[in-house]
């Protein structure tokens, strides 16, 4: 089993329950897209220049003092299991995981700060915070950007701001996203209409791993679509408003599911789901997410699930395929993973 996986701790600070609505908002992320002056964008730069960019970013990150005992990773030196593990932790994107050119990542020891190197842009730096914490995440990401931007030379122009490979990211280069758990709205079939109206607010919703991924366990990444022509603060205020609105809608949906005849049906679904998590002998990740989502909603409704939100959140990370193998300390077949997952849950939940 790769040494790298052992060097990451099993639980992550930003996955602990935090913020104002820990039952609904799992985590908040603020990222900035940046590129270095004097180098072509990553899609058009030669391998030796990409290696030079990575060297410069590693050096700037070391000098910043913001990554003590951090991880400095070269993608081409990692195996598929290690890359999956990092993608499951939201430190690297599926795009970066499949890169064969000189690329990399710097990840802080607490795993709250990270920088992807030579993904679509030379730098994608981000801060992850527990719960609904747009202001905190923005402050930390701006600080990281300021320090790295002082040690490097970013591409910047008055008219278009920070220049990025895709014009959709230029300007502030900011993306603010919250990972929201919205099981009641999903159960009432309200998500399609909600997503439709989000798009009219300049906001996009995606699956749990970001762009082009499926919705799992009723978790949605909600993020700003536009990032030019307004200040970083204006974009975050807009997101704050949108998220608060979603929270109100989810609260309303929960009330409906708790009312009158609906209550027994809801309760039955929630406790059946808990039964699967507690007693099944083989559980796939998909099945885990579906049942966990219902149990998590039960906890939010005040029913005793025997688990707090921090534990739900940590399990959401730990039960992923590469994490299961890291916990087992060896590579497992899909069937082996499902059995290991069921055993783990049984011990944890009974």
């Amino acid at each position: 089993m790769a040494e790298l996986l052992k060097s990451f701790r099993p639980d992550v600070t930003w996955a602990n329950a935090g913020g104002a609505w820990p039952d609904m908002i799992f985590s908040t992320r603020v990222r900035f897209a940046r590129n270095l002056e004097g180098f072509a964008f990553a899609n058009r730069a030669a391998a030796d220049r990409l290696a030079e960019i990575r060297r410069l970013v590693f050096a700037a990150a070391r000098e910043s003092g913001m990554f003590p005992r951090g991880h400095y990773l070269k993608m081409e030196a990692l195996g598929p299991l290690e890359k999956s593990f990092l993608a499951e932790r939201h430190h690297i994107s599926p795009v970066l995981a499949s890169s064969v050119l000189p690329s990399g990542a710097v990840i802080s020891n607490d795993e709250d700060l990270s920088v992807m190197i030579n993904e679509e842009d030379h730098l994608r730096l981000q801060c992850l915070s527990a719960g609904f914490a747009i202001e905190d995440a923005l402050r930390s990401a701006l600080k990281l950007d300021e320090v790295l931007g002082g040690n490097l030379r970013y591409s910047f122009a008055e008219q278009f701001g920070f220049l990025t490979a895709c014009p959709a990211n230029a300007g502030t280069g900011i993306r603010i996203s919250c990972l929201a758990h919205l099981p009641a709205m999903a159960r009432l079939g309200r998500m399609p209409a909600a997503l439709e109206s989000l798009s009219r607010l300049g906001v996009i919703a995606r699956g749990i791993y970001g762009e082009g991924t499926y919705v799992l366990g009723d978790f949605y990444q909600i993020a700003n679509a536009a990032c030019l022509g307004r200040s970083e603060e204006a974009f975050s205020r807009n997101m704050d408003k949108v998220i608060r609105n979603l929270i109100r809608q989810e609260i309303g949906a929960r009330e409906l599911l708790m009312k009158g005849a609906a209550k027994l049906k809801t309760e039955d679904a929630v406790f059946r789901a808990l039964g699967v998590l507690r007693h099944a002998r083989a559980v796939s990740y998909n099945e885990f997410m579906q049942n966990m989502s219902l149990a998590r909603m039960g906890a939010a409704m005040g029913w005793n699930m025997g688990l707090d939100f921090s534990t739900f959140n940590q399990l959401t990370l730990l039960m992923q395929p590469a994490h299961i193998q890291a916990a087992a300390g060896r590579a497992l077949t899909p069937a082996g993973r499902d059995a290991f997952r069921a055993d783990y849950l049984r011990k944890k939940l009974n």
Partner: peptide, 23 residues
């Protein structure tokens, strides 16, 4: 840009340029 973002001009933080990096 105007079609994607609703604006064609950056209005966020400026950038004075960093120090000369160690190539």
């Amino acid at each position: 840009m105007a079609r994607i973002h609703g604006f064609a001009r950056h209005a966020g933080r400026g950038y004075a340029g960093g120090g000369a990096p160690e190539f």
